[in-house]
Structure formats: C-alpha cells, structure tokens
Nucleic acid binder design. Structure first.
Lengths: 215, 215
DNA sequence: GTTGAAATTAGTACGAA
DNA sequence: TTCGTACTAATTTCAAC
C-alpha cells in the first residue's frame, strides 16, 4: 500500500474533487458502480466493464482502497434464508449524559444492524434483525431497557423491505435549473427538528387531526 | 451452476434447517461471517479461516450462492468520500390504494438507499443519501411530494451513524432459559401498532407529557 | 471430506505512446 | 497518465485417495 494521501496536481480535468484525498472522476464512479453490484468481480473483467486497460484498473482500484473510498467488501445475505425473518426499528430516547455508554453497549449486541443518531422526536434509531417477533420484544424489554442510557423506546415492525440498495452513488448533477426557493408555508414548519410535508389538497384536514390513523 | 434446490436427505446432522433449501450448519455460518467482513477473500484463504479444506470451501461457497443464501457481493463505500455527506430518514404516509405506484417510483430514485414498510404511525420509512441538506429538502418537496401515492412525509436528519453492519447473522442461541412472560403492564400498550417501553422509574412522568422534548 | 497436481486466471513490472 | 505486453504468483478446477 502506498501513501496516496497527497492529492494530484490542482486543476485536474476530473470532475469531482470531494473533500480531501483522491480526486474522483467519472471512471472512478463507474468502478464504484460496478463494484457495488459485483464486489467479487475480477479486476480484468472490471477493466473491460468500465472501458479501461487492466493496468489502469489495478491502479485505480488500489487507489480507491488505499484512499479509503472503498472500505471493504461484503457478501449480501438473504436474511430470511438464515432465519432472521423479523426486522424492526426501535426509536430510542437517550439520556444525553450517557451517550458513550449507549454506543458501547450497542456495539456488543449482534442483533443490531444499524444505529443512527437523528434529529426529531427521538434521539436514535436502531434497526434490529432477529428470528421472530418475540425476540424483538425480548431484546427491547430485556436488553435495551437494561441500558441505563435508554430512557424510552418505541418499536415498529418492518412488514416488508421494498428497497435495499448496497450503497448509493451520487446522482448525476441534474440540478441545472436553479434551486427554486420553497414557497413559504408550503413546507411545514419544523417541529422537534423534523420537517413535515403535506400536500396542499388534503393537507389542512390532516394537519388538524394529525393522529387520525385512517380515514 | 448446478441445481441445488433439492435439499439433502432428511434427518441431516446439521443444526439448522431453516425454511426450504440448504440446511445450514455451523461451518456455513462461519463462512458467512467471514464473507460478511471480507467479501473478496479467496476461497483458499476462506477455507483456512474456517478450518476446512479448499475443495470443501469451494463446494459450500458455491452451494450458498446457488441456493440464494448469498445473493451477491458489494463494495463498502465511505459515503462522505463520494460527496454524500447527508443522510436522512423520511417517514411517509401512503395512500393505501396506490402502493404499487409508490414502490415503482421509489425504485427510480437513486438517492433512496433503503425503504421499508412499517407498522406504527407511518406507512413507510425511506432512507436517502444526498450531497447536502438542501438536497434533502428538494427531494422531499419536489420528488416525493409529487408522487400521488404520498399523502404526507416527516423528515429527520441523521446526525451520526453509530453502527452500520454489513449484515447481521443469527446470534448463538443464548436463550437456554425459557422466555419469561412479560409482566403485564410493563411493556406499554400498543398504539398505532408501535410498542412503547418506558422504564418504571421515570416512566410515569414521561408518559404524561409525551411531547416534551427535553426537561 | 481431504489431499495433491494441472490448467487457468490474476497480479506485477516493465517500456512505449 | 494510460496502454500493452511479458513475467511471476496465485487461484480454481479436477483428479484420485
């Protein structure tokens, strides 16, 4: 591994210098796009797919790795095939003085696939994957509840996973048009740090009876 | 690729026959565990890591692929390095008669990394990854809002991603102890299909003023 | 399920454009 | 920088045990 932290000469022809580190051009993104879908593809095949020579592909591949753009590779696993049929989201209210403990404890729980700190009503959202619904209940009431940092939780069960992309790549800059200023009042006012949007047509009614589950 | 859909003889010694298809034993899970962390590892190295012969590793590897347990491989990408610094969750209320359209439209939006249908207050949660906060606003108000199926949205910004595991594997069956029946009243009553848990000590107060963000 | 050898492919190191 | 080629090392396949 070489030290690639010193970036190339400024004024490169590549499109995107993003932050520090490697300046990524469209070929890099093509590579990432292929590797996102086929992580075990050979570099030779990769080179052909993106239309560059093998040597170039090796160079770029290694640069992406060394620079930390690519942090690793993972097998995608069909969770239902390994008995993890149930997925749930747990929204957690955390005691602000015990954050560190909360993170540390989460790291020891293998059922937790994802945890993010969010704005809004709750402090964190964690996604868990377990064998059955009773395991959700056990995990929340026994394990999560026993963490002193956890003040309250709210759990929802995931009924279906519509979309699960390995990783998102930047969209082609389609915003040639200048960003239109949002019409005042169209976007809801922030509440608890979350933004509400309700279409104008049925908006007013819904705003009034916000807790009404179904009409 | 061979047809491995016909399972082996019944009464196999393997620990876990889960659903239909391949009966997975502990070696399979070891393989998945390694491949989850190092998706590009060679099968030879994989064999050594899990303590089996090369040929055996090839056989099992191919079986896991053919049976659909492993659905593919992906590069893990440092999102900040490709300019996708902002991640947000959008909770969507969907018109129940337009689900199909909702799913189809989502699939065309490259910024959407994940979408799940949930119980609870909202119908779906989508996770988006974009370049800046203004892009979140644009995506929600312009793109999501223009979907007829979308009745309302609620957006929260992700401030930090504490944990992001490639994939969860089943935990070792630690529940040797019989699952204790939950004490009635300890777990909150369902509301909108979500389960609340609030520790006994500070629970009552919080229940009363549920909307109080900070004390 | 394991071991060992053959065939193929991958990775590296050059010079040339 | 990128490409093309030759060289070396590794991997995958296939056979027999």
């Amino acid at each position: 591994m070489e030290d690639l932290s010193s970036p190339g000469s400024p004024g490169e022809r590549g499109s995107g210098r993003i932050g520090i580190g490697l300046a990524l051009d469209s070929v890099h993104f093509k590579i990432l796009g292929v590797l996102r879908g086929q992580g075990r593809i050979s570099v030779a095949a990769l080179a052909e797919r993106v239309g560059i020579s093998r040597a170039n592909a090796y160079t770029r591949f290694e640069a992406l790795r060394a620079d930390g753009v690519i942090t690793g590779f993972s097998a995608r696993v069909d969770t239902s095939r390994i008995g993890l049929d149930i997925c749930a989201l747990v929204f957690v209210t955390v005691r602000q003085d015990l954050w560190k403990q909360f993170r540390a404890t989460l790291a020891t729980m293998p059922e937790v696939e994802y945890c993010a700190i969010t704005t809004g009503q709750h402090d964190a959202m964690i996604q868990i994957r377990v064998q059955d619904v009773s395991a959700v209940h056990r995990l929340v009431t026994e394990q999560l509840a026993s963490i002193p940092a956890v003040r309250a939780t709210e759990t929802v069960i995931i009924l279906d996973e519509v979309l699960r992309r390995p990783y998102v790549l930047p969209t082609a800059p389609r915003s040639t048009e200048p960003t239109p200023a949002p019409a005042p009042g169209a976007a809801g006012t922030g509440q608890f740090g979350m933004t509400r949007f309700i279409p104008a047509a049925e908006g007013r009614a819904d705003l009034q009876r916000a807790a009404d589950p179904e009409e």
